[in-house]
Design a protein around this nucleic acid. Sequence first.
DNA 1: ACTTCGACCTGTTGGC
DNA 2: TGCCAACAGGTCGAAG
Length: 271
Amino acid sequence: MPELPEVETTKQGISPHIRNKRVREIIVRQRKLRWEVPNDLLIDLPGNKITNIQRRGKYLLLYSSKGVLIIHLGMSGSLRIVDESFSVGKHDHVDIVLENGNALRFTDPRRFGCILWGQEPIESHPLLVKLGPEPLSNEFDCDYLFAQSRHRSVAIKTLIMDSKIVVGVGNIYANEALFIAGINPKRQARKISKLKYEKLVPSIKEVLRQAISVGGTTLRDFTNISGEPGYFRQSLRVYGRGGQECSACKNILKEIRLGQRSTVYCSRCQR
DNA sequence: ACTTCGACCTGTTGGC
DNA sequence: TGCCAACAGGTCGAAG
């Protein structure tokens, strides 16, 4: 679930329900997430308003006058607005309960996500300080990525999934963007021409923008509990389609492993 | 400085 | 139907 488009969609979904709302209490049912939920958060946040909500890469940042709540959804995390009395599931680890009786509920079966507490300037937080530019910002352009790729022998797919290079490009969209750009995911980053990078950067932006717009329509209502899945699945060109025909040339799509991640591509369209 | 790999967890899927 | 291994949207940090 949580690639950048879903984190962005989550941000848009929860923001109107929590902005300028005061936190009454924080209920922690399981504090062992990727890192333990810190005590300072439980002491400092209650009684204060959430003033602003931002996204940095796949991190959600909830600002208050006492500090910043940092949330990452990991591989299986999700956030939703519920009534505080709504039945609690096995993996509902944390509730941020508001004064109006609503709660921001964090659910995460695999517990690869995290809930942390940081101080401003939050960009200096250890988890955020080394992050590369946002993929949809002007800072992330062809010149930048081309420069970063020089002298790098890693596969291009590994490079664009590296958060120090650019944030928010997960496995699904790395596969998709490389297909659209016509680049073989195994190619060494330094051996790819500038011309190809001029195709790749817009492909990454396009695929993320499109997914955000779709996510925005299917995950709109965050107070609805029905939890609708399967949003853009059908529009994927390569991810999850290994062994099937390429939508462009009918060649059989190859599935390999690259850096322990499943990688699908068309050996005819992607060189 | 760069690259690879193990680790953190639970749930689902596919082969036998 | 049951069992078990492999795999899943992430990413940090140690080891090479």
